[in-house]
């Protein structure tokens, strides 16, 4: 199988469509024949990251690189940045507004879930500039 690149714009306007990019990636991985467990890990991590961009950063972009032995996902936004990554990584810590909680998110599980499912998680963030998250999954 050759290398496949996918690119998505994640709109920050509409919470209804958040998760569409992750859904497309999941479909593609299924078509390529990856195992259901690996697909689920990737889909969940990307979905949480996508939701985060919509909640906190008014959307952004997602670039997905699919290789036979690994999948890399870069999610980039121009949001407010993460002031304290250590805090943001702890389960239950959330800065999401109440309206987000009423939608079923903002329980402070997003980044912890992402960390749990990705084989590698790298976060670059700058206050007032934005956040770039690189997720790597070993799929071989």
């Amino acid at each position: 199988m050759s290398h496949l690149s996918l690119s998505y714009e994640v709109s920050g306007e509409d919470f209804t469509h958040a998760g569409e990019a992750s859904s497309q990636v999941k479909k593609t991985l299924k078509r390529l024949g990856y195992s259901p467990d690996i697909i689920r890990r990737i889909a969940i991590a990307m979905y949480e990251a996508e939701i985060n961009m919509v909640i906190h950063a008014n959307g952004g972009t997602a670039e997905v690189e699919i290789y036979p032995e690994r999948v890399e996902i870069v999610l980039q936004d121009e949001g407010p940045g993460i002031p304290d990554i250590e805090k943001a990584m702890s389960e239950g810590f959330s800065t999401a507004p109440d309206n987000v909680r009423s939608l079923g998110f903002g329980a402070g599980m997003g980044l912890p879930n992402i960390k749990k499912y990705a084989d590698d998680l790298n976060i670059e963030t700058e206050i007032g500039k934005g956040t770039k998250i690189l997720l790597t999954f070993n799929v071989a």
């Binding site: 467990d37 969940i44 949480e48 079923g104 998110f105 599980m109 912890p112 879930n113």
Partner: peptide, 8 residues
């Protein structure tokens, strides 16, 4: 939903 997603 994040609680649901916490278990793979």
């Amino acid at each position: 939903m994040s609680d649901v997603l916490a278990y793979v």
